[in-house]
Design a binder for these strands. Structure first.
Lengths: 250, 250
DNA sequence: CGATAATCAATCAAAAACGATCAAACGGAG
DNA sequence: CTCCGTTTGATCGTTTTTGATTGATTATCG
């Protein structure tokens, strides 16, 4: 029997049985245990099975689809509070853009009571949540990046430019000591820059952990943002006294 | 019993019971208490349970983004087999389009061994799965429809037109008695029509339940498709004898 | 609060499974 | 037929898993 044929038989046995031990396979296919182990190692390398000590498990078709579970995001509680406050700035029938980030992800929970709003986002987990809440949702297209499950790049930027956005809600990686928002990658800054340009009003969600953090790419000075929602009084130092109404500390 | 199998059984027991003691688990699964404790420690490490003194509690999945769970799709096993066959038609470095449907969803599981492929899709669950498998994935933008979690409409169509697609994999709602593919809504047929137009080769996944089913909108005659993958011999009747190589019955 | 019972984490030894290695068997290419 | 690369099975030392035991910790109830 050919090796590939044996692989197929292992996979079909596994599909039926869900779990199988190496010893059983060895008997069913009349080959030795080391051979079965080598087969299982190869099938695991191809991501076709899940290896477990003693045997293997199918990769069930039950894999839950979007894994970004925000209980695991750092500071989830603080970010949730920022999102709750941000949602109060949304009016009925608004067209808003929510930029993809773990900070803004939870906004989906606070928009259900708005009437006739439309949300545009480049974040797939956020888009999925919004749709499930019954909110009219557009997602930008383009390449999807694995670690953030979000769209960046020229396709997404082109998409945004087709809209006149009432309010943009976004976050970023850090705010350096000069009060400039910064990000660790260029595509991220680019899409945010475009979104800022297309929006009548910009709202920046800034939890305390971002303050004083400098990453390679500059976005814009924080003073050019219309509203900053934060959980830290320190943000005030980055604005002039007469700009106090731009800042919401919760 | 494999360790992974035991983990799964613990989780499914927990899902039913909400709470379970370590002692009960030990008796139900015929393993010792220390083993159960080690299992529970591991499951807690994976954030799949909440450990409590004496036993374990389920994590109520209130906020996990789990939109389209394809265990619930009808005929999932047959569709999976169609997908496996379809994947064999993908070559290394191909640019392929996979249209959103429950039929094509499982193709994500059979593409891991292809080198350098790029997949475009209008289905968000599929896109998410592909990205997680490490496959370069583009998703069309546009409005998201709640029941299918997919993009339809002119944005998505524009997006597709930017690509020269090697192979299109798609399904549809039904194939009527005249051998014409049909769909229940216009946007669906539209995007499929565009995708067919942009693709060098078209592959139609047709499980038996679709045959003889007529819905309002005509897409194209089945004879214009390059390859049909089906689990029913009946499809042959819709083609001329000399076109037999267009049909793959599994 | 304190005593008792249950549960826990840590440790250890036995058994099972593992990976690495090597030689034999196999199968085309020359 | 021979050569060379591939695949396979046997062997062996190592690692992993498991259940028993023990002392520590935690919950329960009078």
């Amino acid at each position: 029997m050919l090796k590939e044929e044996r692989y197929d038989r292992i996979l079909s046995i596994l599909e039926k049985e869900q779990y199988i031990s190496a010893l059983q396979l060895s008997k069913m296919l009349y080959v030795s245990l080391p051979t079965i182990r080598r087969d299982l190692a190869e099938l695991r390398r191809r991501n076709q099975i899940i290896r477990s000590h003693g045997g293997a498990k199918v990769i069930q078709a039950e894999h839950i689809v979007a894994p970004l579970d925000f209980r695991k995001t750092v500071n989830a509680a603080e970010k949730r509070a920022l999102c709750r406050q941000a949602a109060t700035m949304v009016n009925d029938y608004d067209l808003i853009f929510i930029d993809s980030s773990t900070t803004t992800l939870q906004m989906a929970d606070f928009l259900s009571d708005k009437k006739g709003i439309t949300v545009i986002t480049n974040g797939i987990p956020l888009a999925t949540l919004l749709v499930q809440k019954g909110i009219k949702t557009y997602c930008t297209g383009g390449e999807i990046f694995e670690n953030s499950l979000a769209h960046f790049g020229s396709f997404a930027e082109d998409f945004i430019q087709r809209f006149n956005i009432d309010t943009l809600f976004f976050s970023c990686h850090g705010v350096n000591e000069n009060g400039v928002l910064t990000d660790p990658s260029l595509p991220e800054t680019q899409i945010r820059r475009v979104a800022i340009h297309q929006s009548k009003k910009t709202v920046f969600l800034c939890d305390e952990t971002k303050l004083g953090l400098s990453t390679p790419y500059n976005l814009v000075p924080i003073r050019t943002i219309d509203q900053v929602i934060t959980n830290s009084e320190k943000v005030r130092r980055l604005f002039q006294p007469e700009e106090a109404e731009k800042i919401t500390v919760i």
